[in-house]
């Protein structure tokens, strides 16, 4: 099952799920966690809104196509 799937796929999955569930866990164990100040604003705007929603997914989707193109170029 999933034989031949590029390693970068699993690394990307680890980054995305790791990030989301780590912060969900913190939110459900530390009272008021989303509103704790980070970089001058409530932390949830940084780890959820800016990075979890957008930044991290841009990086992961970039890695997915870039690493595959690099691997294919190497093969040729």
């Amino acid at each position: 099952m999933f034989k031949g799937m590029p390693k970068i796929f699993w690394i990307g999955m680890l980054i995305m799920y790791g990030w989301c569930f780590f912060f969900m866990y913190l939110e459900m164990t530390i009272p008021g966690f989303p509103l704790k100040k980070f970089l001058g604003v409530p932390a949830c705007y940084i780890y959820n809104w800016l990075l979890g929603l957008w930044g991290m997914n841009i990086v992961v989707s970039f890695l997915y196509y870039y690493m595959e193109e690099k691997r294919e170029a190497k093969q040729k």
């Binding site: 995305m16 949830c44 957008w54 997915y64």
Partner: peptide, 24 residues
């Protein structure tokens, strides 16, 4: 309220997965 933000994160987070899983 705020916990539903995670639904939106889940939707966008599901997009990169398609790159290698089904798109290619």
């Amino acid at each position: 309220g705020y916990p539903f933000w995670w639904a939106l994160v889940g939707i966008i987070g599901g997009m990169p997965i398609a790159t290698l899983l089904t798109a290619a």
